[in-house]
């Protein structure tokens, strides 16, 4: 027992040194259990967010207003599905299967970005999601390109490239609407107002309240604090709102010369925890939809398994 502990202590010291030297941890490397668990939690949550996010955006694919918009939206949602797939695979490198992750999602054990528990009511929501939600995601994900786990960091490099395209297309939708008719302008204003606060909530609770933050920062899984990332997002987005000519979604937004940042109002944390804990407008619907699609597809997966087994049996028979 003692030698095992000693080995582990050496492994731990090597791991700590590598983290401190900014080296990437790879799937076959030794890593502390908690580091592994923490990564599985964060990465699978990220994957689930991409997958659940297909629902609110998919909600407008069949109603996109032009063929070009339809093609772009289809392409975007397809990218998100690809991100989900890529992230599930990266997470599998930590010793969990995709079906275990899906079980955790469907049982409510694993979370996904709360923003997708809000409905996409109008076409402008598609613009607002691309612009604000993907915009907020990028702010977070850019820092994750330097996260300590190799497969996650590399996934982020690739995903960020596509996300920045998504954000631009969202902003372009908003630009057209904001410069359109009165009806369209109202549509844009309304969608921004509704999506603004949930977008700020995407960065998570205040640093002082965040359950996983300090440890994740220590492991360099997380590279910037929730509040710093949120401020960064606000600072980059306010000028964009001005450029669109829309009214600010928060009357307290104001440039603070001294801080060199925009001040803004406080998030409704009661709503934040309510949605995280399952009582948002679409929580039930999103999981119900996921379960229904998954269970409707069971006969297909069963057929594929059975076909493969039969092919396998044939091969064995022929070989015998």
């Amino acid at each position: 027992m003692q030698t095992l502990d000693k080995d582990e202590a050496v492994e731990q010291a090597t791991f700590d040194q590598r983290i401190s030297d900014e080296q990437k941890i790879e799937p076959t490397d030794w890593m502390p259990d908690d580091y592994r668990k923490n990564l599985i939690r964060q990465m699978s949550q990220h994957a689930h967010s991409e997958v659940i996010g297909m629902q609110p955006e998919g909600n407008w694919i069949t109603r996109a207003p032009t063929l070009r918009r339809k093609a772009v939206l289809l392409s975007k949602v397809q990218d998100e599905a690809g991100h989900g797939l890529y992230l599930y695979s990266a997470t599998e490198s930590l010793g969990i299967t995709r079906s275990q992750m899906i079980d955790a999602l469907q049982s409510g054990k694993a979370k996904y970005a709360s923003i997708f528990n809000y409905p996409t009511l109008t076409w402008a929501d598609i613009g607002a999601i691309g612009w604000l939600v993907d915009g907020a995601a990028i702010v977070n994900q850019i820092t994750l390109q330097r996260t300590s786990y190799g497969p996650y960091a590399r996934a982020m490099v690739r995903i960020c490239k596509e996300e920045s395209f998504h954000q631009r297309q969202g902003y372009e939708i908003m630009t057209v609407l904001a410069h359109g008719t009165q009806v369209q302008k109202q549509m844009a204003q309304d969608a921004m107002n509704r999506n603004w606060w949930p977008s700020l909530m995407m960065f998570g609770p205040h640093d002082s309240e965040s359950a996983h933050s300090s440890r994740s920062m220590g492991w360099k899984i997380k590279r910037m604090s929730n509040d710093d990332l949120r401020q960064k997002f606000i600072d980059q987005t306010v000028p964009q709102i001005e450029a669109l000519g829309l009214d600010m979604p928060d009357p307290l937004i104001k440039w603070n010369e001294e801080r060199g940042h925009y001040d803004s109002g406080e998030i409704n944390w009661e709503e934040f925890y309510q949605v995280i804990n399952g009582a948002g407008p679409c929580n039930y619907q999103r999981i119900k939809h996921h379960k229904a699609a998954h269970s409707e597809g069971e006969w297909v997966r069963e057929a594929v398994r059975s076909y493969r087994q039969k092919q396998q049996d044939k091969k064995t028979e022929n070989a015998a």
């Binding site: 997958v51 297909m54 998919g58 339809k70 397809q78 690809g82 797939l85 699609a293 409707e296």
Partner: peptide
Amino acid sequence: SEWCSNAPYLEEDIALSNIALDYV
């Protein structure tokens, strides 16, 4: 395109969207 988020595998969500895109 109606298959988006409804397919039996995530891979099929991607594939069917892709074919839908070809037809658009």
